[in-house]
Amino acid sequence: MDAIVVENLTKHFRKAYDKTLKGFFISVAKRESRYEEFVALNNVSFSVKKGESYAIIGKNGAGKSTLFKVLSGIISPDSGEVQMNGKVAPLIELGAGLSRDLTGAENIRLNCAIFGLSKARIRDVYDSIVEFSELEDFIDTPVKFYSSGMKSRLGFAIAIHVDAEIILIDEVLAVGDKDFKKKCYTKMEELRNEGKTLVVVSHSLKPLRRICDRALLLEKGEVKDIGSIDEILDKYESEKPKKKKTKGA
């Protein structure tokens, strides 16, 4: 069975939406539409098998983050279907879902509760989350005083402990130090071996080859290519220098 099935997904955003009363009357008087539509995702279809590791790559503005937010349910698509078979733990940007005013310990409890863990289960995983994040000394400090590296460590540690079947990881590993990155990649391989489904968005392409099986290349909101990770990455990398030249000229 497929863990994620996306069919003909389309998402428009409205931009330049002048919210003032003056702007409203002017646009009514001129009889123009009050917002401009912008296509973030256009007819995207793909599926991820259970236990597969999937990479989504593309340049800035290709729609990766939008796709991610749709997958995690934060924004809803205009048309098309998204099917997620299993519990989803999204890790969007750094410190996803962390509340600034709460301490690290409280954030662990809050996030575990968000993912529907019972009180007893939270107690069970609490220690291993603290241990994995290496934040023993700062666990009673409010998260607003955390460095970005600490936040991403905590966020990652929580996401891998909430018994999710599908884990979405978006660029969060860009800030951790070398050792922690290594630890995360090892953990991700472990999760893959356990049969969990991983979807990764990343700019650092090298580790992706090790972790992922297949990849999807997004360009301007459209699926450009789907294939094995090596095939897609080779294509993507060979394309890059060309772009640079055209920019220079």
């Binding site: 995690s72 349910g73 934060i74 999204p90 996803a96 879902g97 509340s99 996030n111 968000i114």
Partner: peptide, 9 residues
């Protein structure tokens, strides 16, 4: 905002 933009429930 920080909760709504990052996780869904």
């Amino acid at each position: 905002v920080s909760l709504i933009k990052k996780v869904y429930f």
